[in-house]
Amino acid sequence: MLYTLLPPLPTRHTPDQILTEEQGWLRDCARDGQPRAHLWQAPQCLIVTRKDTRLPRYQAACEQLAREGWPVHVRDSGGTAVPHGPGILNLSLLLPRTAADLAHYYRLLGAPLLALLGEHGLEGSYDFVPGSFCDGQYNLVIEGRKVTGTAQRWLAPGQDHGGAVLAQAMLLVAGDVNEGTRMASRFYELAGGELRFLPDTSTTLAHCIGWRGSEEQLVAQVQRRLQARLTGN
């Protein structure tokens, strides 16, 4: 499948603003049936779910984490808290609703990412990784460690549209993934939740291919390759 690639948003946009923009694009997709793709990055932060905002010490946790350089933002899709930052590339697919099962959309989301890993000589697969943040059946995994987390949000059919699906993936290209894992656990510790995540359950593309260059350069290279795969150009 080929996608219309959405233009990058201004760098001043916060993750909350980016995710709100995607909700508008999702409604557009529901109305015109045109699949879209959005590639984006966020500064260092944690992105949590609506459910997490109901934890007993949520507000206090947000204030403390902001002081520690990890501001908290909220998304509408499911899962758990996840770390974001300069080494993480996010892919959002906005898809017309044509099937009734989650697996169909997760496989559409995973297809370009698995192909990208294959370009680097890596064999990825879908699997659970117990102890990882936002664990799920449709993690992309390399040698037992998560390299991509995934989530979905469905827009129900309305009077003027047939519904749409937002499928999101975060590709761990580079950076200190154990530190991100630790901070996701710290959110739940501070907020009064029970979830905790284990170190060494996730990995990065940079680690898997033995990258020795600039992490920023690798992220830019991966973004260009994904753009080409998504648009056919």
Rank of each mutant, 00 (worst) to 15 (best):
R145N: 02
T49L: 01
L108K: 07
R145G: 04
A184G: 05
T4P: 02
G149W: 04
L155H: 15
V129R: 01
G158H: 06
W154L: 14
E68F: 14
P86M: 10
P83E: 05
T231S: 03
P83G: 12
D101H: 13
A220I: 10
H104D: 09
R186V: 00
E22V: 08
D101P: 04
D160G: 15
G87D: 01
G175I: 07
G121V: 01
E123T: 08
A206M: 00
D160H: 15
L190W: 08
F128A: 11
V173T: 05
L114V: 14
Q217L: 13
R54W: 14
D76V: 13
A61M: 04
T53L: 03
Q41Y: 08
L109N: 01
R107W: 06
L166M: 10
G192I: 06
V48S: 05
Y58I: 02
W25G: 01
R186W: 03
V147Y: 00
T53G: 07
P35C: 15
P15L: 12
T150S: 11
L93V: 04
A184H: 02
G193M: 07
L155D: 07
C208Q: 10
V222C: 07
A37K: 02
R57P: 00
L6A: 04
G192N: 06
T11R: 15
D76W: 12
Q17I: 04
A115H: 12
R182Y: 12
W211C: 00
L108N: 00
D135K: 08
P199I: 15
M183H: 14
S185W: 07
L116F: 06
G162M: 09
A174N: 06
T20W: 04
Q34M: 13
H84C: 14
A191P: 14
D32I: 04
V165L: 12
V141K: 01
T20P: 02
R153K: 10
G87S: 11
V74M: 12
E21C: 07
L6M: 09
V74Y: 09
S214K: 00
Q137W: 06
Q34T: 14
G124I: 02
L171C: 13
T98W: 10
S202Q: 12
L116D: 01
